[in-house]
């Protein structure tokens, strides 16, 4: 037993030194192999990434692109008619002429009265019917509130349509002018409420007088600005239908 308490060990012989040297060489070789493997791995991973960078795969995952809303009622026919409105009534371009009068609508829509109205049926809950007094174009408080509510429920829509009408009472020219004034009245109110410098690019005005696409009494069940008042076919046509349209036009 040594003074330190350790077990006696055999003296290191020449053979022992040889084993140590051999171990050293194998260890160094092992280290080199590990280093080589790691380095070649690094080289291969970087080369592979470089190759993918320079020659990207054709089939890249498609990324959704932000766009206006497009909902179920945006049928091809509906969009076709509305696109004609946009183009023919000066909304899609920076033109000075704004809005569409009955003759224009008849021409570009190429659609019967009932089919025209039918197109707007899916907008029953999205839009509303602003009602006016006979021969008048002024918006009452209820109309202003409803119009404001509808305007601020824009969601993903790009265009807001105003389809003004007049009832059968009176002559055609007078009703044409009256429905035009009603459309403008809605537009003026929106302009003051919206505080939007680009409102002209958003609002599409149509005035139909009493010549085209008159509403039947059935439309009295739609949301109106005078929900508690008597509604008949005369009353429902003294109106402006307003709605955002959730279609990509």
């Amino acid at each position: 037993m040594s003074a330190t308490g350790a077990e006696p060990t055999p003296p290191v012989t020449g053979a022992g030194a040889g084993v140590g040297a051999m171990a050293g060489m194998i260890g160094a070789g092992g280290g080199v192999v590990l280093l080589l493997a790691a380095t070649l791995g690094v080289k291969a991973w970087v080369s592979s990434a470089t190759d993918r960078l320079e020659h990207p795969a054709e089939t890249k995952a498609k990324v959704a692109i932000a766009d206006q809303a497009e909902v179920a009622y945006c049928t091809p026919r509906f969009k076709e008619v509305l696109e004609r409105v946009l183009h023919s009534c000066g909304l899609a371009q920076d033109e000075t002429r704004r809005g569409c009068k009955p003759a224009d609508v008849k021409t570009f829509a190429s659609i019967s009265d009932s089919d025209f109205n039918e197109l707007f049926t899916p907008l029953k809950d999205r839009g509303a019917v602003i009602l006016f007094d006979e021969g008048m174009q002024d918006l009452d408080e209820g109309a202003k509130k409803l119009l404001e509510d509808k305007w601020f429920q824009r969601k993903g829509a790009r265009y807001f349509f105003v389809v003004a009408r007049a009832s059968k009472s009176g002559n055609q020219a007078k009703n044409r002018a009256l429905s035009h004034r009603r459309a403008n009245s809605v537009m003026f109110d929106l302009t003051s409420v919206a505080n939007d410098p680009e409102i002209d690019k958003k609002v599409g005005l149509l005035w139909l007088g009493n010549e085209f696409a008159q509403l039947s009494k059935d439309y009295c069940s739609w949301p109106t600005s005078r929900a508690n008042e008597k509604c008949d076919e005369e009353a429902i046509n003294r109106s402006a239908f307003v709605s955002w349209v959730d279609c990509r036009l």
């Binding site: 060990t9 290191v12 022992g16 030194a17 084993v19 140590g20 051999m22 171990a23 050293g24 194998i26 260890g27 160094a28 070789g29 092992g30 280290g31 080199v32 192999v33 590990l34 280093l35 493997a37 790691a38």
Partner: peptide, 17 residues
């Protein structure tokens, strides 16, 4: 990699390290 090689050396050299 280096330390692995060195550990291998110590393992092989054992008490002769």
């Amino acid at each position: 990699a280096f330390l692995g090689g060195f550990a291998l050396y110590l393992w092989l050299a054992h008490e002769r390290a």
